[in-house]
Design a binder for these strands. Structure first.
Lengths: 111, 111
DNA sequence: TAGTTACGTAATGAAATGGTTACCTATTGC
DNA sequence: GCAATAGGTAACCATTTCATTACGTAACTA
């Protein structure tokens, strides 16, 4: 996975509305754009912009049928991100996480 | 974890330079700002801005000693993100991941 | 103590992000 | 055919992001 692809996926995930879209599509695979829009107060165009971001980084797959566009979740990018971080930080987590978390929970972190 | 906190952590991770900083600090806990800056072509101020982003979302802990600032990785936010996504998408992954990953590795992904 | 080192901040500017309204095209249903 | 529906695009605007240069301050060192 290219650096720019990781950037794009993380950037896409760094927005609550886009994460909500993913959740909605996950809950109702094959749903349409307008059905997603109904769950938001923001404009249809704004949601479509979010959808385009999700298409670009391939978190959402889509196909046009008639005048509708059907949406599907593609979890592969998330999985790749997950692998990246667990691979690179897994050892660190395993070794130090418990202690650090303990200290943080006791308010002993030095922010 | 608040939505805005998730946003902040993912936003922070959505930048290759900031991820590189995390990798550097992970490889050399307690390293200083200037030692991190040496690994980049961009200006010291730009890197310090990235550091501030990482401080704000608590991916980096830091303490000033003399005229130096020592940096430490705090993997708790990453762990929380990890938990968030595996909790919400775990079932989906569990059901389809093996097959998808297998297909991806064989170059048969459906992008 | 004078100079270098390490870090911090201010001012500035280009580009990206995220939203809006207005309008346009294609499909469906009556 | 005509109106309603579903989606797409264009133009615009405010804010944030991300970089720069210039300058300031505290601490180490020769």
């Amino acid at each position: 996975m290219e650096t720019t692809e990781i950037d794009a996926v993380l950037q896409a995930l760094a927005n609550a509305d886009r994460r909500k879209i993913l959740d909605l599509v996950k809950a109702d695979p094959g749903c349409t754009v307008s059905s997603v829009v109904k769950h938001f107060d923001t404009s249809r165009v704004a949601i479509m912009r979010h959808l385009n971001v999700l298409y670009d980084c391939k978190l959402l797959l889509h196909e046009k049928v008639g005048r509708s566009r059907h949406l599907y979740l593609n979890s592969v990018p998330i999985q790749l991100i997950y692998d990246r971080w667990t691979d690179e930080y897994g050892a660190f987590w395993g070794g130090q996480l418990a202690d650090i978390k303990y200290r943080v929970e006791r308010g002993e972190n030095n922010d």
